[in-house]
Design a protein around this nucleic acid. Sequence first.
DNA 1: TATTCAAGAGAGAACGTTCCTTCTTTTTGG
DNA 2: CCAAAAAGAAGGAACGTTCTCTCTTGAATA
Lengths: 202, 202
Amino acid sequence: MPKISPERREERREHILQAARLCLQEHGLEAVSMEMIIARSGLSTGAVYGYFKGKDEIINAAVTEGTAELGREVAPILRNPEPPPLPELMRQLLSTIEDFGKDRNDGIDRLLVAMHGWSHSQSNPELKAATLATYRSQRELFAETVRRWQSAGVLDPGADPEEIAQLLVSIVLGFAAQRALTGDADVRAHVGALEALMCRRD
Amino acid sequence: MPKISPERREERREHILQAARLCLQEHGLEAVSMEMIIARSGLSTGAVYGYFKGKDEIINAAVTEGTAELGREVAPILRNPEPPPLPELMRQLLSTIEDFGKDRNDGIDRLLVAMHGWSHSQSNPELKAATLATYRSQRELFAETVRRWQSAGVLDPGADPEEIAQLLVSIVLGFAAQRALTGDADVRAHVGALEALMCRRD
DNA sequence: TATTCAAGAGAGAACGTTCCTTCTTTTTGG
DNA sequence: CCAAAAAGAAGGAACGTTCTCTCTTGAATA
């Protein structure tokens, strides 16, 4: 029985998802079509439908798994038992996220793909649920880091870790958005601004 | 000649855009169709096409003009010659943005619509240009506020206003994104977090 | 003032296209 | 040699747009 090996199957599946991500970031969410993804993947219609039930499942997986990869990439930074001060932590986070695509040399900007996912998740309950879970767990990681700061005495113990975590998540998401919108959001500016604000004079 | 009055024409045009925004926030960018918008508007196909050249022009105008409205709404806060400290300023900004839809009672969450626009602008050059201009001018308004802080001596004069403006824009955009994604991002948390971070102990 | 008329404005059916999916045929590999 | 896998043509629905017909409106006319 000429069944393809599980490894090869997984490889092909990921190949299709990469094609979908390329289409997503090149043509945008509403312009992406099955024909596009199929052409980009180099496979045939039948082949692609052998791996996914339909378009929604592809877009869904492309976004969800791409975001999960990003999450896995930054997790070590947020789990650091002795987290650096906020500006340095943010520098580590943002540059890790920014370099993720470049390091892999796959030409995919996962931040851009994630942002399309934000839009898509509004109309796709499954994606919405997956996205919600991902970002909530990220926020919890942030909150734990905040608690470590408090333990170390570098932050007011009376502050609410959940609130600060929420703000930090906003900064990361906003960085992604501003980058996509203006093209010139950069890590150094964000880090510099945090340093300046935290050392204010009044 | 039975021409409709310019006022009534503008009214109808805005009515169509409102219908488009409702469809956008209810069904998401990729699921929204002409049929939907037309049905929601209560007009006929021919009528709608008398006001707009096509779908792209409607989506474009719905997002661009909605964002412009938001911009106009927050402008006074950013032009305040004696801006309050950052946490209070951010409180004014975020709650103004958040309440904008509710105040109008039109059931439209312009933050959500704007976020769909972020995605759409990636594939629509005209929208991208309009969006870029809007957010850049917002950033400049932020930068001017930062300079006022510096003049008033509440912020390090050596800090770069452009960098801080970039961070503040990220916080606002991130607030919008997190709100759409998790549904529980809230103004008080963001303000509280800013207060806590700016009064840190180290 | 009542009537007529021409053109703007609206309605909705219809058209051609695009798109997602399925189905049949061909190839491949153990 | 056989079944799994891929290929690619074909089907059927949905979508954006156009086109024609009807209605409305306001001014010109008697």
